[in-house]
Design a protein around this nucleic acid. Structure first.
Length: 733
DNA sequence: GCCTGTCGAATTTTT
DNA sequence: TTCGACAGGC
């Protein structure tokens, strides 16, 4: 039996349709990744050199998975296929050719924070009141302009009669100027500049057209205008472009994703073949029906209806709890029960609308000692200490990056203040040199006075680091930086838990550097920084990790779990307050698609829940049950006794009854560092400290898999069993 | 130049 | 509730 026999008719059709443009409308759980991987295998069967195949995915995780699955299928040659995200693809191309656009090839990538500081700086410079025009708005506006492939001058021309937008045009122009001066690109630029490169340098485009003769784009509904521009340019020569998407799962409109790309596809490629995949292999009938019923309320969508041969399955549970704490507790109790029935934690996921909702769960997981993992939220790479150290690396790598230099010039404290920095800046601008070069020639800056010595000290430090980079490994450089700057020493001196956590984070960063260096074929500082800039939190989600996963509905796209809990099903939470208030019906449709995505993540059983009363922004709110619950037919739902969906007004009596309930403060999360403990710092008989349970004596340590199960007799709470990597026990004397 | 305290804003989603 | 920005005092 061949590998293609396991596919259904439509899937086969899609796999065998290799020549010419193909639009694959693939519903949730319809096996589109299978189709894509089999299609690649088939192409190779047909004698296509894997070198000519390109697949673009949404996340690095998806890219990695696709490569592995193709590898399993064909057994050889998969490493030659170009599988990556839009952003990584563009970086790879730009690293080779961006000098043609007047940038240096070792450009830096600016993340959202960098963007914000730069914009802020410019606003100050142009005396723009950020109360009238918040930085966020400006950044979004610029970002949308770039999504539409609009240069600053084009933007200006288009909005010349709009006062506010004319201002933004100015900022946009200056922003681009400074980015270039810093030899930096923001996320949008990565795509923008690549398209520009192709536009102005047809010979480069031609090279890549020849290279990528077969192109596949996953999650096509989430591509924006310029991304579509990019792939259509590449495919213009051979027309072998296969895009896979589902308009019902388009949830990134706010980021410029353009569902019209799906409709447009047939306009740009009139000979395009369209194939629909409507059989769902993932969920039970009940889950799928609920999803279909909800999404049916959207008007602007391509007609389709998913069906499945899977069993009916359990009804969908819906519970309305008193408070968000109760909600969390009940969900976790359920998880514990499932675990006791023998289901792995990794089979369960909790999904929510906003990251802030994860807090309450963290605490409950801590108390119950159940391993969990939160995806997203404050990213590891956004932490202050991590950004500081990374900035040192960035400065060593790209001295033109003024932002990075300014960030670290006085971190740790060197007595260099705002006044001095401004003087250096003036000198740099006057002489048209970078900020760092101005530091190097501090002796020539007359206005500096006593600060000269300090600046020279800093300049020497950077020179020293550069020397170190020339002669040693990245690991050595890293350690050298943290030592010579005194960064870690300063933290140690603080002697607080917080500082200790920061040191842990720095060590975690060091781990990543070491891992990178071991795995890279040819390790370089630029490549390391680039990898760091382009990872999403979701990329780090290991399937082997047996933990309950918590994440936003957005992050969950493309994933599946046997047991899914969607919490906060309340109007004002999900759909979000912004959407409920919005005049634009499209916003609610996008929110509904998000709901559809959430529901269709579940394979076996779906739990929905809401709270009658919830703390938000320090205030208690009473929310109605989400309108999306109403949209699910009651016969698909299993409701609590006494609940009446028709009468959804908050129950005041319950509020007073529960008042005075004391809840503990949420545990401050340091959860990102997934400590893979090779050795434990304590052994049987030692006294250890747990963040919540206090002191206790270690009774037993049982190695299991990649972790240890530790039994501790706590003074206050008695005997508890816990996972070592999770509990973060500290030895006490 | 650095530290501290107060005030205001924030919570929609992210490669 | 929590975080960050900013002002004012040392």
């Amino acid at each position: 039996m061949g590998i293609y026999d396991t596919l259904n008719e439509q899937q086969q059709e899609a796999v065998f349709c290799t020549e010419g443009p193909l639009l694959l409308l693939a519903g949730a759980g319809s096996g589109k990744t299978r189709v894509l991987t089999h299609r690649i295998a088939y192409l190779m069967d047909q004698g296509v050199n894997p070198y000519h195949i390109m697949a673009i995915t949404f996340t690095n995780k998806a890219a990695k998975e696709m490569r592995e699955r193709v590898d399993d299928l064909v057994g050889y040659g998969a490493e030659h296929i170009w599988v990556s995200t839009f952003h990584s693809t563009c970086v790879r191309i730009l690293r080779r050719h961006i000098d043609k656009l007047g940038y240096g090839n070792s450009f830096t990538i600016y993340d959202a924070d960098d963007q914000k500081s730069l914009i802020k700086q410019i606003c100050k410079q142009y005396k723009i009141d950020t109360k009238m025009m918040p930085e966020r708005k400006i950044i979004n506006e610029i970002s949308s302009a770039k999504d539409e492939f609009m240069t600053p001058s084009e933007y200006e021309t288009r909005h010349q009669y709009d006062f506010k937008k004319k201002k933004i045009a100015q900022i946009y122009k200056e922003y681009q100027r400074q980015l270039k001066a810093n030899n930096a690109l923001d996320f949008d630029d990565l795509i923008f500049k690549t398209v520009e490169l192709f536009q102005f340098h047809p010979e480069v485009l031609d090279y890549y057209q020849e290279r990528f003769r077969y192109i596949m784009v996953d999650e096509y509904q989430d591509t924006n205008t310029i991304q579509f521009q990019l792939v259509s340019m590449l495919a213009r020569k051979y027309h072998n472009l296969c895009v896979v998407g589902d308009d019902d799962q388009s949830i990134y409109k706010f980021r410029g994703a353009n569902v019209k790309n799906i409709l447009n596809f047939e306009n740009v490629f009139p000979e395009a073949v369209t194939i629909k995949l409507e059989q769902n292999y993932r969920s039970t009938k009940n889950i799928l029906n609920a999803a279909n019923e909800v999404i049916k309320h959207n008007k602007g969508r391509k007609a389709k209806k998913l069906w499945t041969e899977n069993e009916e399955g359990d009804l969908i549970e819906f519970h309305q709890y008193g408070t968000e704490y109760e909600e969390a507790r009940q969900i976790i109790d359920k998880i514990e029960a499932l675990s006791n029935e023998g289901y792995d934690y990794k089979n369960m996921a909790i999904l929510y609308r906003t990251n802030a909702q994860s807090r309450v769960f963290e605490e409950s997981f801590m108390i119950k000692n159940i391993p969990y993992r939160i995806v997203g939220g404050t990213n590891f790479y956004q932490r202050k200490e991590v950004k500081d150290i990374l900035s040192y690396l960035k400065v060593v790598d790209n001295g033109l990056d003024d932002l990075a230099v300014r960030r670290i010039i006085n971190v740790p404290r060197r007595g260099i203040g705002a006044a001095t920095i401004e003087k250096i800046n003036v000198y740099a601008v006057e002489h048209n040199i970078s900020f760092l070069d101005a530091c190097f020639s501090a002796d020539h800056i007359e206005t500096l006075g006593n600060a000269k010595k300090k600046i020279n000290g800093f300049a020497d430090l950077i020179r020293d680091f550069r020397r170190k980079m020339e002669e040693g490994s990245l690991e050595e450089l890293f350690k050298y930086i943290t030592e010579e700057t005194g960064y870690i020493a300063d933290l140690k001196a603080e002697e607080t838990e917080e500082a200790e956590g920061r040191i842990e984070n720095i060590n975690e960063l060091l781990n990543k550097v070491v891992t990178y260096e071991q795995e890279a074929e040819e390790a370089s500082l630029s490549e390391l920084l680039e990898e760091i800039a382009l990872v999403a939190d979701i990329d780090n989600l290991e399937d082997s990790d047996n933990r309950v996963v918590l994440m936003t509905l957005h992050s969950a796209k493309g994933l599946e779990f046997p047991y899914v809990f969607i919490c906060g099903m309340e109007d004002g939470i999900f759909p979000s307050y912004m959407t409920v208030m919005s005049e634009n019906d499209d916003d609610m449709e996008e929110e509904r698609r998000l709901c559809y995505v959430g529901i269709t993540r579940a394979k076996k059983k779906l739990y929905l829940s809401a709270a009658k009363r919830r703390m938000m922004q320090g205030r208690t709110q009473f929310n109605k049950v989400s309108r999306f619950i109403d949209e699910i037919p009651e016969q698909l739902l299993q409701l609590d006794k006494g609940i009446n969906l028709k009468e959804k007004r908050p129950d005041k009596a319950l509020f007073s009854a529960n008042r005075g309930h004391k809840f503990r403060k949420p545990y401050q999360a340091k959860s990102f560092t997934s400590t893979k403990m090779d050795t434990l710092s304590y052994s049987v008989g030692d006294m250890v400290k747990h963040i919540k349970f206090g002191k206790g004596k270690v009774l037993e340590i049982v190695p299991g898999g990649r972790d240890y199960e530790v039994t501790v007799d706590f003074e206050k709470v008695g005997v508890k069993k816990m996972f070592a990597s999770f509990a973060k026990l500290k030895k006490v004397e």
